[in-house]
Write a protein that binds this DNA or RNA. Structure first.
Lengths: 156, 156
DNA sequence: CTAGACGTTTACGCGAACGTTAGCTAAACA
DNA sequence: TGTTTAGCTAACGTTCGCGTAAACGTCTAG
């Protein structure tokens, strides 16, 4: 019945953010490959694994990353760029893995995104106030400086 | 000779930023009074002392803060607001204490202020990019959501 | 045979800015 | 007499996102 639809439904959040990346046909990645591709260190990738953000399989001891791991990593990095903490990102990924109702997941994600936008706007405000306060101070100090320089010149 | 002038010169950076505060005629303050006035904890004031930002005298064991300490505290808090680290603030205060040529000090301070303004502007940019990226994602996810909701409605 | 590339684990360090007990005075009020 | 109130020192704990060894395994090229 809705088989075709459910296949279409397989467009997931990962694909959205990761922009359905077809830049490579590879299905397996080593830790070094991913580190190079996404410009992070091996330590970082291991750390993310330790924090439960990614779950590469093993070939013996060596980590083997699937396309899915790669997509998740992309999400993690995008999350970092927009100011989410790693634990917040993990929460979202975990939720995402529940796969109950996709719709619910999307709603939750949407809420978090909008909340984060608000957080960022508050930060922008704070920074703007800091800039304003600093600018005022610069004005005053500049004035003092000119006066002092004039005084010094007069003394000579 | 320039006695009168040097007295006028006693307008210091502390006074500039602290806006030559005459809100009280008191000359002595306890740690609790300052904590209440500036809305910080005792621990914070002791911590700042430990870091060399303030140097209250002692009456026995108890700390006694002068108007100068109070002004410095005000500088510290303003420095924090505008994004300076405590160590950067301490450097400026130390420099200020050197009292060699006031003019040099003012120039240095002015430079640091302007540099910090630049830093803040960069941060604003970063945040704006994060907001943009998030907003784009919100758009996409919203679209997905609408489509999914439509599909769900159609299945019923 | 050996050097180099690539990988592994365990685990301490850091930097910023305090929070948080814990245990002790000393004055002041009832 | 007891109990708030205000203060003290000393020192460990916290959060974040990794950096940085240390010490070791494994495979390939020359």
């Amino acid at each position: 019945m809705s088989e075709a639809l459910s296949i279409l439904n397989e467009q997931e959040l990962v694909d959205v953010v990761a922009a359905r990346d077809e830049s490579t046909k590879k299905t397996q990645f080593t830790i070094g490959e991913l580190a190079k591709e996404f410009d992070c260190t091996l330590r970082t990738l291991r750390f993310y694994e330790d924090k439960g953000l990614i779950n590469p399989k093993r070939d013996g001891l060596n980590r083997v990353y699937t396309r899915r791991d790669r997509a998740r990593l992309k999400l993690v990095l995008m999350g970092k760029r927009v100011g989410f903490s790693l634990s917040a990102i993990r929460d979202m990924l975990d939720l995402y893995d529940l796969r109950d109702g996709q719709v619910t997941q999307l709603r939750v994600a949407l809420n978090k995104f909008n909340e984060q936008i608000d957080v960022l706007k508050v930060q922008q405000n704070d920074i703007q106030q800091a800039i304003d306060e600093l600018s005022r101070t610069v004005e005053i100090v500049s004035g003092m400086l000119k006066q002092k320089e004039a005084e010094e010149a007069a003394e000579q």
